[in-house]
């Protein structure tokens, strides 16, 4: 992995889940997809078209079943679960559709927890989390718990968490689905600007036309070419 490595390189990536009737149900088929370092890309597709599965594969949450998947120059195919976990902690920031803040933690702790799994010392993690919260305009909300924050503020905490670890790639899953149009635009602007400052590539999956309209590049997921996935 070098600085010249693309943020994402996919070749013939396919994925299937076990079918209730037995056999396999193909859910994802990406013949080719590249994302340069620092680049922004929006992936769109029909509901159930494999968008979230793509994010889970790129994040290393799901193992690669078929094809080539490289993130920041590292091939995830063949990596074990623990190795993928380590890789994700260091290189991937994740912005969840429903934010997924931990209710028992303050805003600061929700951001700092992402660094705990990188081996960052608690004091340094708190400092980095505070800076990240300040960047998203929530310096005065660091001690608030999620239920004490508005939806927009929760989104900003989630953005701060996704970027606190200086990831190579940020994955955003339907980032505007919980926000009204005005807040959605603000959140997207903040996410794009923060990612750019950190030099992180941004891969957003969405079915929101407003998000698609802002994207410099769009990739449309097509239905899988075949129901079978060679292992």
């Amino acid at each position: 992995m070098t600085s010249a490595s693309p943020a994402l390189r996919i070749r013939d990536l396919r994925h299937a889940f076990p079918s209730p009737e037995g056999g396999a149900l193909a859910v994802l088929d990406v013949p080719e997809l590249d994302l340069a370092a620092g680049e922004r890309l929006v992936v769109r597709g029909a509901s159930g078209g494999g968008k979230t599965t793509l994010l889970h594969l790129v994040a290393g949450i799901l193992p690669v079943q078929h094809g080539t998947l490289e993130v920041a120059g590292t091939s995830l195919a063949g990596l074990g679960e623990a190795a993928r976990d380590r890789f994700r902690a260091r290189h991937v920031g994740y912005l969840f559709q429903a934010f997924h803040l931990l209710p028992q933690l303050t805003a600061l702790e929700n951001v700092a927890v992402a660094l705990a799994f990188q081996g960052v010392r608690p004091a340094a993690a708190r400092q980095a989390a505070a800076q990240s919260l300040e960047r998203v305009g929530l310096a005065d909300r660091r001690r608030h718990r999620p239920h004490q924050l508005s939806v927009g503020q929760q989104q900003r905490v989630a953005i701060a968490r996704a970027l606190v670890g200086h990831p190579s790639l940020v994955l955003a899953d339907e980032p505007t689905s919980s926000l009204d149009p005005e807040r959605a635009t603000e959140a997207l602007e903040l996410l794009e600007a923060f990612a750019a400052e950190r030099g992180a590539a941004l891969l957003t999956v969405t079915h929101d036309p407003a998000v698609v309209a802002r994207a410099p590049r769009v990739y449309t997921l097509e239905p899988p070419r075949t129901a079978e996935v060679a292992r």
């Binding site: 994040a59 949450i61 679960e81 623990a82 976990d85 380590r86 994700r88 902690a89 260091r90 991937v92 994740y94 969840f96 997924h100 931990l102 927890v113 992402a114 705990a116 799994f117 990188q118 968490r161 670890g165």
Partner: peptide
Amino acid sequence: RREIAILRALGARARH
């Protein structure tokens, strides 16, 4: 389960 899944998605290993 949600909390555990979030932690794992944030990079927590199973042993964590």
